[in-house]
Design a binder for these strands. Structure first.
Lengths: 141, 141
DNA sequence: CATGGACCCTGGAGCCACTACAGAGTCAAC
DNA sequence: GTTGACTCTGTAGTGGCTCCAGGGTCCATG
């Protein structure tokens, strides 16, 4: 329960979100524009803090800005059914699992590549496997 | 051993690299500019094909354009030592492993989130855990 | 020789989610 | 009133493409 409004720097410190990013979120309509001081400084209130924390957490979980926008819309209507949120999490989970699988394949390939060869590029497994995947030792490009 | 030069479409089909991307690679100096037909069409030769395949493979392995540039420079000098290549693979492997670890944590959190709650947003675990990480069931934003 | 359709050209804008910067103005403590 | 931290706006840049408009080229047909 913060009583006094705070500047953008305070909001940044309390959320770990970059100042530039906060202004960016306002620009794209993710964070509502706050009141301003006489000199034009942004003056945030507690609900901005809550909302930005929500956004931050969503971003940390890898949701896109658009998904977060949708989740915020949901969150604003406590009586609405939450299938939408469930759907979004499932979709995102699928995506993350696919990414992990892809990166794991990648990792295995990179592991095979490392522990380079002899001494010079001409015999280098790494360069070789880039030149012709599957077999090493090829002419350089 | 292709004898006739081929157009950008042919190069695209043989490598799986988008035509626009090929032109982009030329623009940023990754692929050398080929000869041109009288009408201005790009005419590629076998060495372009080899080089683009190298680039493609590097991208598939997740290397950045800059890394690929460096690897190509290495590949061009068969007598040079290949520690550089080894280093790059190790660095990249580290990065990939870090990414996998991050995504795995993410996946576990998303798994905890799914199988939404009751029926409405007010009791929704998903919205709740975005609102306040660690504990569910909070007021909406 | 004309035509049609597939192909290709250039230059520029757009994507995502920020991040960086210049040049100016504001605020609060001393 | 001065200092120094803070904030403002607007614009441009990042990576790695991707898409588009508005035109030109190529070559197999009729």
């Amino acid at each position: 329960m913060t009583l006094q409004p705070f500047n953008i720097g305070g909001l940044s410190r309390q959320t770990g979100v970059n100042i530039e990013t906060i202004r960016y979120y306002e620009k794209i309509g993710l964070l509502p524009p706050p009141a301003r001081s006489q000199g034009g400084f942004r003056q945030y209130e507690d609900h901005h803090l809550q909302r930005l924390r929500f956004i931050r957490r969503g971003r940390d979980l890898g949701f896109s800005i658009d998904s977060i926008r949708a989740l915020l819309t949901l969150a604003e209507r406590p009586d609405s059914p939450c299938e939408g949120a469930d759907q979004m999490v499932l979709l995102h989970l699928d995506e993350v699992e696919r990414k992990i699988a892809d990166l794991t394949l990648l990792r295995d390939e990179l592991r095979k590549m490392k522990n380079c060869c002899g001494q010079v590029v001409a015999q280098c497994q790494i360069i070789g496997s880039l030149t012709a995947p599957g077999s090493a030792q090829q002419d350089a490009i």
